[in-house]
Nucleic acid binder design. Structure first.
Length: 566
RNA sequence: GCCCCCGUAGCUCAGAGGACAGAGCAGACGCCUUCUAAGCGUUUGGCCGCAGGUUCGAAUCCUGCCGGGGGCGCCA
């Protein structure tokens, strides 16, 4: 018997075989049979699955689609997983899953447990998700939170889909911004010792730089102080970056994100490292040209609008050089089969040239997926909260987490498709009411747990429950909803659309609430999970257990907690 | 000027070339002697920005236009 994950290809197989049988029997003209095209009807009245094959065959077969549908159905064998299929205009074949099949899914889910809806799409291939990767020159802000939520959920979904996943944070610890950061830190540090020195022009005016300088002084006293006018000690910049990265790491941990690796940009430039190797490849291919004293990557020859500088005329490499070396490292040295970069939309101009460079160093540009997410606008009391990085007045991710909690923040970040600009309503996120979908979903999980707990108090457990007793409409509807999780994971992992997770979580919670409150609506106590009938109770407890597994799974994929009581 | 994203209900937004376009919130009307009312039920609300095209079939794909946002540095 097929299960949740395999039912769709199973039906495709049935339909394709029936179509071929119809051709063999002379009921259909001899035409090529494309994929059986099984989809889910929007309206449940049309069944659980539908094939549009007759519509697709109509032209080639030169027959009305309805006739084709009838011919195919005529050759479909009876199958225990489905009820007899129905033909519907203009040419659909509609399938309804059998009650027994639905009931069996409860056992399937319980047996799978926390691994429920795991897929084999990745087939053990490796995937790397690199996300946030904000410059360690300041605290993470709210926009970084969106990237964190998206990247982490995507990584979770890819892991569920059968990839070996690594999460990575790329630390920009080389380059101009780092120098500005170090100069600012040294200025603040000197100020602590009473020197009247100005901040550098392109420095970082935020108050956190003062804190950082104080931290350095508390730990190391005046060890980094140099006579006035002398250059700063380079170790101070290094230390500052380390302290800042430590803070970022802590912020992300409080957001529920843990990385497998923190990758240093600086390490690209070690002797014999990624930078040298990647540049050697480009040089050997004749793709590097010198002009105006700088070294350019001749990307225009590969279809880009223009060439781009990789080494400035003063000899320092650009971020683009770093990116090329970094992606050479990802693909050619570490050998990831799939690389996903999650970037803010303000970086969109780099997508094309990075893909071009990736191809030039010998990687498959198709294996590089760059997911762009649009800006976040904060709203409070219906008013837009203005952000200004220049003045240092930003709302940090720490502040957001403190105000609304990591769960709510992640849920709202995931709710919108990455490509859509989003408003983040601070008032709504923190509201503990029916207006807030975060609590709606978590509340469903808490009630599932509480039902199991109540039953246990009365000596009832799901053990030994017979799922064949699950026949009520709301019970079967809940099972149908639980079955969708595999599709959702596939969608997220193949299309890189994490917004399906929170939407599905809401649908699943709704199905549970409808099931759970059916007895009130119909004023029938026998519809409760825990009833006079112990056998029926045990069967429903199995359904509750399965629902808890499914809901906990989707909450986990979103990086949210699954509270047992609220 | 060129490039990217968005335009769907009053608001915030889902929508996988298929059937009558959905959800939440807001609005209206019901349901607490309850396995947690952070819940449930009923209901109001749509030229899917506009105009063409492709297709048996378009909110979805293509072209053009309009509107909103972002980007086009030897910054990252």
């Amino acid at each position: 018997m097929p299960d949740t994950r395999t039912i769709r290809p199973y039906l495709e197989g049935l339909v394709a075989a029936a179509a071929k049988a119809a051709v063999a029997a002379g009921d259909l003209p001899d035409v090529a049979i494309p994929g059986a095209a099984i989809e889910r009807p929007k309206d449940p009245a049309n069944g659980d699955f539908a094939s549009t094959l007759p519509l697709r065959l109509a032209r080639a077969a030169m027959r009305p689609p309805l006739d084709i549908a009838r011919a195919i159905v005529h050759h479909l064998p009876a199958d225990p997983a489905i009820e007899p299929p129905a033909v519907a205009p203009p040419g659909f074949i509609n399938f309804r899953l059998s009650q027994a099949f639905l009931q069996d899914q409860v056992e399937h889910i319980i047996a799978a447990g926390p691994a429920y809806a795991d897929l084999q799409l990745g087939a053990g291939r490796s995937a790397q998700v690199e996300f946030v990767s904000a410059n360690p020159t300041g605290p993470l802000h709210v926009g970084n939170g969106r990237g964190a939520a998206i990247g982490d959920a995507l990584a979770n979904a890819l892991a569920a889909a059968g990839y070996r996943v690594e999460r990575e944070y790329y630390i920009n610890d080389a380059g101009t911004q780092t120098d500005n950061f170090a100069e600012t830190l040294y200025a603040r540090y000197q100020q602590l010792f009473g020197r009247d020195v100005p901040l550098p022009e392109d420095g970082y005016p935020g108050a956190y730089m003062v804190e950082l300088a104080e931290e350095v002084r508390a730990r190391h006293g005046d060890a980094f102080l140099r006579p006035p006018g002398e250059p700063m000690p380079p170790e101070l910049g290094q230390l500052g970056i380390e302290l800042m990265v430590g803070r970022i790491r802590k912020t992300l941990e409080s957001f529920g994100v843990r990385y497998d690796r923190w990758y240093s940009e600086k390490s690209l430039y070690e002797p014999g490292g990624a930078y040298e190797q990647a540049m050697a490849i480009l040089r050997d291919a004749g793709m590097l040209v010198e002009r105006d004293g700088a070294l350019w990557f001749a990307s225009s020859e590969l279809g880009e609008d223009k060439d781009n500088v990789v080494v400035r005329s003063d000899g320092r490499p650009t971020y683009y050089a770093s990116d090329i070396a970094y992606h050479w490292d990802k693909f050619l040295r570490r050998g990831f089969d799939l690389v996903i970069d999650v970037w803010g939309a303000d970086h969109h101009g780099h997508v094309s040239r990075l893909k071009t460079a990736t191809k030039a160093v010998g990687a498959d540009p198709e294996a590089l997926q760059i997911l762009l997410y649009q800006l976040v606008t904060l709203k409070r009391g219906g008013e837009v909260v203005r952000l200004s990085k220049r003045s240092g007045e930003i709302i940090t991710l720490d502040e957001l987490v403190e105000e609304v909690g990591a769960d709510a923040a992640r849920f709202f970040f995931l709710l919108r498709s990455p490509g859509a600009q989003m408003d983040f309503d601070l008032d709504l996120a923190v509201k503990q009411s029916s207006e807030n979908p975060v609590y709606y979903v978590q509340y469903a999980h808490a009630r599932l747990c509480s039902i199991l707990e109540r039953a246990r108090e009365q000596g009832l457990t799901p053990d030994g429950g017979n799922v064949r007793l699950l026949t009520a409409p709301h019970e079967l509807a809940l099972i149908r909803e639980m079955m969708q999780l595999a599709d959702v994971i596939e969608n997220v992992a193949t299309r890189f659309e994490p917004q399906h997770l929170p939407h599905y979580a809401q649908d699943l919670a709704t199905a549970f609430h409808a099931f759970n409150d059916a007895f009130k609506q119909q004023n029938d106590p026998s519809l409760k999970v825990i009833t006079e009938d112990a056998e029926l109770s045990r069967a429903r407890l199995r359904l509750v257990l399965a629902a808890r597994i499914a809901l906990a799974r989707v909450l986990g994929l979103m990086g949210m907690s699954a509270p047992e009581r609220m």
